[in-house]
Design a protein around this nucleic acid. Sequence first.
DNA 1: CGTATATTACGAGAATCCGTGAAATATGGG
DNA 2: CCCATATTTCACGGATTCTCGTAATATACG
Lengths: 119, 119
Amino acid sequence: MNAAQVVGTLAALAHEHRLRIYRLLVEAGPAGLNAGTIAARLKLLPSSLTFHVQHLHRAGLVTQERNSRQLIYAADYGVMSGLVGYLTENCCAGNSACGPSAGEPRQPVGRRSRAAKAA
Amino acid sequence: MNAAQVVGTLAALAHEHRLRIYRLLVEAGPAGLNAGTIAARLKLLPSSLTFHVQHLHRAGLVTQERNSRQLIYAADYGVMSGLVGYLTENCCAGNSACGPSAGEPRQPVGRRSRAAKAA
DNA sequence: CGTATATTACGAGAATCCGTGAAATATGGG
DNA sequence: CCCATATTTCACGGATTCTCGTAATATACG
């Protein structure tokens, strides 16, 4: 997962409606939900729902499938997994700060060692 | 960590410059970097750097500290830890898709089995 | 005090995003 | 064919964000 894709995924989730849509779809599981149900459950206008759910779809976070007259959306865990992997890798990789306790980071163990530059 | 704060954190990271700033600060470790160094390293205008680094600071992702004439910014792992916790909890909670293997969801209940869209 | 460095604050313009409602497309049934 | 349902597409107004340049503030030092 490269930086550009990470930015896209983060931007897709960085909106109240879209985060709620995604969480609802995650809760619904692989069976997914059709557009109307999502809109009703979240009290969104149909056109607004389309706008946001397609944003999620373009970002790869959500899959789309047609079931006769209805369009079923479901969460695709792969991209989220990649995102979390990227964030943990780049956030906590060397210092294991995002681990169990997440306390003070210790020695940076990155391949670069010019940490102390200020002062 | 509530939804609103998650949205704020995601939005803070959902920008090319800010993600690069944050990664650079993570790499720099707890010693942090001063504003000028960040701007030079990332080839950003000073005013542009302030704009973005303060966005990260407002989101709680970055700490600010003064060292005589310089302002030192450092990554604060706590919020990122909370973000990752929220995402994994809400993304993979029931189905453990983002767990150890983190592959495709292996079709627990649904009759729908067409989620593939490799990232 | 006056000068130099480091950083932030302010303001204008362009670009993008978002909410809303009306019209259009796709599917199913009489 | 005509109608009903489900969803999307489109156009538009308003709000927010981003970039950039310049001015202002904080600190250090002679």
